[in-house]
């Protein structure tokens, strides 16, 4: 009986206390940031507008491997591969339909060359949905973005313009198959 009374008391008082505490929030400061009057700081790793970066040599980083396209949960990235005369892969088309994009950042995670990166810019509203379709020229920026120093073709084994077989990082000279020496 005593226990029941105690429980009843503590239950009632806890509900009343909760109500009281909630009411006291009337006099607290509000957490909301009144965007757009006040613009918050967004960290560099914020997931906003997508860009295509260049490698340290200034060449396109994207090799049109299509991994961003396939990892995209809303299928809003379309990449068409092309090859230059030296065998270097590059995207002939790189199109993002931002009216479908959910800014999940999977494409950035999937990108093996650090080409595709998300930026802290999210102010992309348009009155015409068609304007939300970004082509390669709209996406490509001049710099390396968040990943300085990385150049995929310097790591990959394929020969491309300016880098022959065996000239990449950590590569031995091509094997001479005509020799019988071990």
């Amino acid at each position: 009986m005593k226990n029941a009374a105690q429980t009843a008391f503590s239950a009632t008082s806890s509900v009343l206390r909760t109500i009281g505490m909630t009411f006291m929030h009337s006099f607290r400061k509000r957490e909301t940031v009144l965007y757009p009057e006040e613009k918050p700081y967004l960290p560099p790793r914020y997931r906003g507008r997508i860009v295509l970066t260049r490698d340290p040599d200034g060449a396109e980083r994207c090799v049109a491997c299509n991994l961003c396209s396939v990892s995209c949960p809303v299928d809003c990235i379309s990449v068409v591969k092309a090859e230059d005369e030296t065998g270097r892969w590059y995207p002939e088309t790189f199109r993002i339909n931002f009216s479908r994009c959910i800014y999940c950042g999977f494409c950035e995670d999937a990108c093996p060359t650090y080409a595709i990166q998300l930026t802290p810019d999210f102010e992309m509203g348009e009155f015409d949905r068609q304007n939300m379709v970004y082509e390669k020229s709209d996406l490509t920026i001049a710099g390396v973005g968040k990943r300085p120093g990385y150049n995929f073709y310097r790591v990959a084994g394929m020969a491309v313009g300016g880098k022959d077989k065996g000239e990449a990082e950590n590569e031995a000279k091509p094997v001479n198959i005509k020799t019988l020496l071990p």
Binding site: V70, D75, C76, R95, N97, V133
Partner: peptide, 16 residues
């Protein structure tokens, strides 16, 4: 099932 880019393939022609 992982056929990609359905919402971007022809977006240059019409975003719908």
């Amino acid at each position: 099932h992982r056929y990609a880019a359905r919402t971007a393939l022809y977006a240059n022609v019409n975003v719908r």
